[in-house]
Computed example of a mutant assay.
Amino acid sequence: MSHMNIADIDLNLLKVFEALHDESSASRAALRLGVTQSAISAALRRLRAVYADQLFVRTGRGLAPTLRANQLKPVISEALNKCRQSLAMVDPAASHYEGRSVTLGLSDDFEIAYGRRLIEEIARRAPRLRLIFRQTHSQIVATALMERSIDLAITAGGFAQRLLSREVLGEGDYRCLVDPRSLAPGQQAISLEEFVSREHILVSSGGFIGITDEGLAELGLSRHVCASTTHFAGLPYLLKGSQAVATIPAHAARHIAAFTGLALLPCPLALPRYPIELGWRTNAQPDPVLLKVREAIVASFTTWPPSGD
């Protein structure tokens, strides 16, 4: 084991480490940092000596981090963010968002409904900051936050972890989407009987049973699910030209209907409303950039959606 002292380490090496971990490619890391590829290779040789580990190994798909590199990543990124934060303390007026990114975990119903709005709110508060949307859902969100693969998350619950904080952004309910060509002329609603007789497309992160099945079971009814998918963005393509119906969160249903011409209908089944929550790692010294992004998220939800349907 080499005995290294912080005095022997060039802190620029840490920026190279972060870029290599994010980009999985020496050429892309070089572009990101504005240096030559040979400078990246030289830095990687020094990093390997410092940490006595390969750190990144060549695979068919670029550079893959080793176990040690994955353990180091959150620590190194946090150290670099602390440095960026220190500059912001000296010069609060300057925007120190260039080169920084915040990763927001959410399922794509929130991305569809709020993504554009979030990009605009964040650009106003933290210009040049890059927002990374990463798919998550309530079963895995706590782990993703604790493992630092995401910085913040918007989900319908899932933050029941002692080291996580949360804030309720609002409450959601459900709407149905169908191809308008499958409706009678002027038809604005769908009866429970017609709802059950149609085929259904389920959006689920893994299960065979959705909230709709539970609601129908209470009435002694069941439905036929012809297909299920993990993401909402595919729905327009799966519904168009069919008799199928999808029952999804209202915020996404409104946006999908507006963009694709699918018909938005009230759900003929009474389904429970659910809380929409923002979650983050509890931290005694919160990062000002994350605070800015949290403010932007809260603002996006308080002014949206327009009340009334």
Rank of each mutant, 00 (worst) to 15 (best):
H3D: 11
N5E: 13
I6T: 13
I9V: 15
D10Q: 12
L14H: 07
F17K: 00
A19L: 08
L20G: 07
L20F: 07
L20K: 07
L20Q: 08
H21V: 04
D22K: 11
S25K: 04
R28C: 01
A29C: 03
A30H: 04
L33W: 05
I40W: 06
I40N: 09
I40E: 08
L47M: 04
R48N: 07
V50S: 03
V50L: 05
Y51H: 12
D53V: 01
F56L: 07
P65M: 13
T66M: 08
T66Y: 01
N70L: 06
K73W: 13
V75P: 00
V75E: 05
S77K: 12
L80G: 11
K82F: 09
A94Y: 05
S95D: 11
Y97S: 10
S101E: 11
L104Y: 00
G105R: 04
L106Q: 10
L106F: 01
S107I: 01
E111H: 10
I112S: 00
Y114N: 03
R116Y: 12
R116G: 15
L131Y: 01
I140D: 10
L145V: 04
S149F: 01
I150T: 09
D151R: 09
L152Q: 10
I154Q: 10
G157S: 06
G158Y: 03
A160P: 02
A160M: 08
R162N: 05
L163W: 11
L164M: 11
R166K: 15
E167L: 12
D173L: 12
C176L: 14
L177F: 02
V178E: 08
R181E: 11
L183A: 05
S191G: 12
E193K: 14
F195I: 01
S205Q: 09
I211T: 04
I211M: 10
T212V: 14
E214W: 00
L221F: 05
L221M: 13
R223C: 06
C226D: 02
A227S: 10
K240E: 14
K240P: 00
Q243Y: 08
T247V: 14
I248N: 06
P249M: 12
P249N: 14
A250N: 12
A252Y: 01
A252L: 02
T260W: 01
A263Y: 10
L264E: 09
C267Y: 02
R273S: 14
Y274C: 02
P275N: 13
Q285D: 15
D287I: 03
D287W: 03
P288E: 08
V289I: 15
L290M: 13
A296I: 04
A296E: 01
I297C: 01
I297L: 04
P305Y: 00
S307H: 12
G308S: 15
